[in-house]
Computed example of a mutant assay.
Amino acid sequence: MIRTAIVGCGRMGENHCRIVKELQGVSIVGAVDPSLDRARALAAGYAVEQAAAHLEELLERTRVDAVHILTPPTTHAPLACTALQAGCHVLVEKPMALTVVEAKQMLDAATQHHRILTVGHNHLFEPVVRAAYTRVVEGRLGRLVGLDVFHGCLPGSPPWVADLPSGPWINDMSHPLYLSELFLGEPLAIRAVGHPPADRQKVREVRAVAQHAEGVSTLTLSTDAAPFRHKITLYGTHRTLEVDLIQEILVETRPFSGHRWLRKGRAVLDVSTQLLFGAGQNAVQVLTGRGRGWHGLRTLIQAFYAAIQTGGPSPVPAMQGLRVVTLLSEIRRQLLAMPDAAPEKGRAGL
C-alpha cells in the first residue's frame, strides 16, 4: 500500500483527494496546510488519517511514501526537497519552481535519493490533446509549421496568485510552454512582451513567440480576458486543427476545390458538422456519468502511481519542468527589460 500525503488543502487539494481515492493500492494518510483548520476539514471530508500544519510534522508522525505538493509556487522547492530527502516520491504542481536554481535543487534531490519527481503538466494527458497529437504524428495535417496557444485564467483564483512576485501570469504560463514543446519540440529562442508595461512586476497579459527547429509558436496568457478560454491551433501544410480544451472539441479545417462560394459553403458545413458531433459526444459523456472532468489530471496521477509501483520513469520528467522554469525566467527577464510605454503627444487623437 502506497501511503500518500496531500500538501495544500485548497481547491486542487480536494481535486487530488477525489482522484487518489479512486485508486487501488493507495491510501491518503495525511493532509498538510499552514491553516490547520483547513487541513482538518480536508482530512474529515476524505477520511484522511491525520492533519498537520507542517510537512515535517507529518513525516515525524507516520510513514509517507508519496507527497502531492499543491501549494503556492514560492513554496514548491523547499517542500519538495524536504519530501525527497525523507525518501518520498513527489508530484508537484506547475510551475515546478520560480527560479532555475530552485528547480535544479529539486532535480538534484530526486536524483540523489532515487525518487520520482513528477511535474503537474496535466494538459499533456487531456484526451483532446492526445487526439490532436495522434493526428499530427499520423501526418493528417501535413508538415506542422506552427501553432498558437491561448490560455486564460479561471475567475476566483486564490489571493496568492495576484501576489506572486513576477505577476499572476507566471502561475499558468507553464501550460502554453509545455504544450508548444509537445508539438514542435524544445524552443530554440523566445521573445516576450507584456501589458501593462508600467508595472512590470504585475504584468497581466503576456504574449510570447518561440522559435523551434521546425516552426514557430505564439503563446498567450491572459489574466483578464473573458470568458475563460484555453485553445490550441495547429497549422499544417495540408490542414489546420483547432483544439478547444474547455469544450473538449477538435475542429479540423481543410481546403476545398470549386467555385469560391461552393468552397465557403462546404467549409462552413464541414466545421458545423464537427462542432455538432463533438458537442453530441460530450452530452453523451455527461448523461452516462462518464464526463467527470479533470481527465488529464486523473491520467497523470494514475501514471505517477504506476511509475512508483513499477519503478518506471516519471510521466512528466523533472527535466521538462526545469526547461519550463528556464523559459519562464527568460520571459520574466524580458518583461522587466521592456521600455516604458509613455504615450506620444497627440497620439490619443489618432
Results as ranks from 00 to 15, higher is better:
Gly349Cys: 12
Arg61Val: 03
Val64Leu: 10
Ile308Tyr: 00
Gly346Asp: 03
Pro315Met: 08
Ile170Asp: 00
Arg61Cys: 13
Leu336Cys: 08
Arg323Tyr: 08
Ala279Gly: 08
Ala110Asn: 06
Ala342Arg: 06
His89Gln: 11
Ala109Leu: 05
Tyr305Trp: 12
Val324Cys: 09
Gln201Val: 01
Pro127Cys: 13
Gly291Ala: 14
Asp65Gly: 14
Ile116Asp: 00
Val284His: 02
Leu91Thr: 04
Pro168Trp: 00
Ala132Met: 08
Gly278Glu: 07
Gly291Gln: 09
Leu276Gln: 08
Trp169Asn: 06
Val92Tyr: 00
Gly194Phe: 05
Asp65Val: 13
Thr220Val: 13
Ile232Asp: 02
Arg140Ala: 05
Leu164Pro: 08
Ala341Asp: 11
Arg18Ser: 05
Ala110Thr: 08
Val100Asp: 01
Pro72Cys: 02
Val316Ser: 03
Ala53Cys: 04
Thr273Tyr: 13
Gly291Ser: 15
Thr74Phe: 02
Glu93Asn: 11
Arg11Asn: 11
Phe256Val: 05
Arg323Ala: 13
Phe304Met: 02
Ile331Glu: 00
Ala210His: 00
Leu177His: 00
Phe256Asn: 07
Gly312Glu: 06
Glu60Ala: 14
Gly278Thr: 02
Arg63Cys: 13
Pro155Trp: 05
Leu336Asp: 06
His114Arg: 15
Pro313Asp: 00
Thr71Tyr: 00
Leu250Ala: 07
Gln309Glu: 04
Val29Cys: 04
His76Trp: 00
Pro159Asp: 04
Leu234Gly: 02
Asp244Gln: 03
Thr253Asp: 09
Thr71Gly: 06
Asp199Met: 10
Arg347Met: 13
Asp65Gln: 13
Ala41Glu: 01
Pro95Glu: 01
Val29Phe: 00
Ala283Ile: 14
Leu177Met: 02
Leu335Glu: 08
Thr75Gln: 06
His151Phe: 07
Cys153Met: 11
Thr288Met: 05
Pro34Glu: 09
His175Asn: 05
Leu79Val: 05
Leu221Ala: 06
Ala80Cys: 10
Leu276Pro: 02
Glu242Lys: 11
Gly293Ile: 09
Ala110Glu: 03
Arg140Met: 07
Asp65Arg: 15
Arg298Ile: 09
Tyr133Asn: 10
Ser35Ala: 12
His259Ser: 10
Leu147Phe: 04
Thr74Pro: 09
Arg204Met: 08
Ser166Leu: 11
Leu327Cys: 11
Val92Ser: 13
Gly185Thr: 07
Glu60Asn: 12
Val26Ala: 08
Leu276Ala: 14
Leu36Asp: 08
Ala337Phe: 01
Asn282Asp: 12
Gly10Arg: 07
Val129Ser: 11
His16Asn: 13
Arg135Lys: 14
Arg292Gln: 15
Leu336Gln: 07
Val145Gly: 11
Pro227Gln: 05
Thr111Phe: 03
Ile232Ala: 04
Leu117Tyr: 05
Ile331Leu: 13
Val193His: 12
Pro95Thr: 02
Leu147Arg: 07
Arg143Asp: 11
Lys202Thr: 01
Arg143Ile: 10
Asp199Ile: 11
Pro155Lys: 12
Arg207Lys: 13
Ala47His: 07
